[in-house]
Computed example of a mutant assay.
Amino acid sequence: MTVMGILACKMLQDEIVYLIQKDSDISEVIVIENGEHEEFVQKLESFNISYRTVQDVKDLPDSDHNCSGCLTLVVWQLDLGLHEVPKMLKKRVYEEIPVFMPKADAIFLFYGLCGNVLADVESDFKNDACPVIILRDKDGIIIDDCIGGVLGGREEYAKVLKSFHGVGTFILTPMYASYAVKDFFGFGQASAGFTDQQMFELNKFMFESSGYKQVANLETGLHYTPGVEENIQSFADKYQLDVIQMSGGHQRLFEDCYKKVKNRLMPKE
């Protein structure tokens, strides 16, 4: 059995569902049941994709690192709120990789640079028995974030930002929109002791001081997350932003990276 471990940000769960849906070579999907998994398994069920859950990655058997036979995917999504403090995100990812490594034959990180804190993750965990592989574009550059991944990489991301001609634009994917409307920068609200009104005022000040004027609804090609239009309009109304429609999103980068990881695990003869 060959095990691909996926350590992921919830913002990219639609892309993971898409890859699973497309790959008939997957014999089993295992989801870590840590409270971040509910949305993901609902989407799997909507496509009649079978799976099983385990409460902790430690409950999985150790891999013998002898890649052969059927492909098993183990999907482990980490807390979305870690993004509020990039150093905390790095700390958590770096803590969990060594826990995951004995259970998998490769760990595929569904993250980008995320504030530049994951730039060295592959070299910091260099291991021939279980390589750690992060999302990269066609030029071999680690993606900046989930938006950059959907656009295809750094070059394409830069072109899009330039196309706004200096108008501050906040870009939302479907998953990003589903959380932005209710929890934007609010994951640390309780620990900070802010009220809902204080969080709103803080967010609004951030947008105004940064010169944001509009929010872009980025078409990703995936329609797994419900209520996208309503969520984005609600977000725009809340912060007094204009809504624009944005094309150009696709899944090619994720497909290419997944294929490279899979071919490394199960090379074609």
Rank of each mutant, 00 (worst) to 15 (best):
G153Q: 01
E156I: 02
G140Y: 10
N127P: 06
G149F: 00
D120N: 14
E122G: 03
N127S: 07
V132M: 04
I147W: 01
E156D: 12
D145H: 08
G148N: 01
I133Y: 07
E155W: 03
D120L: 13
G149Y: 00
G153N: 02
S123W: 11
L118C: 06
I133D: 08
R154S: 15
I134T: 11
I134W: 03
R136A: 05
V132R: 05
C146S: 12
G148Q: 02
D139A: 06
D128S: 09
V150Y: 08
S123L: 13
P131Y: 06
Y157C: 02
R136N: 07
I133N: 14
V117L: 10
D144Y: 07
C146M: 07
D128F: 09
V132E: 14
Y157N: 10
R154M: 14
V121C: 09
N127D: 12
G140K: 10
D144N: 13
A119Q: 15
E122Y: 06
E122K: 01
D128M: 14
K126W: 15
G149A: 02
E156Q: 10
L151N: 09
Y157G: 01
E156N: 12
G149K: 00
K126D: 15
P131M: 07
I141C: 11
L135I: 06
N127C: 10
G140R: 04
C130S: 08
G149Q: 00
D145G: 05
K126Q: 12
D128W: 11
D144M: 13
G152N: 01
L151R: 10
C130R: 10
S123C: 13
D145I: 01
K138L: 13
L135Q: 14
K126P: 13
S123P: 10
G153M: 02
E155T: 10
L135K: 04
E122V: 00
V121F: 04
D137F: 02
C146T: 06
K126H: 13
K138A: 15
V132I: 08
E155G: 08
G153E: 01
G152H: 04
I147C: 03
D124L: 12
R154V: 14
V132P: 09
G148R: 00
D144K: 07
R136T: 06
E156A: 07
I133V: 15
I147F: 03
C146W: 03
I133R: 11
K138G: 09
I141G: 07
K138I: 07
I147K: 01
C146E: 06
G148T: 02
D145W: 04
N116P: 07
L135D: 09
G140I: 04
I143F: 01
D145P: 00
C146N: 04
L151G: 10
S123N: 13
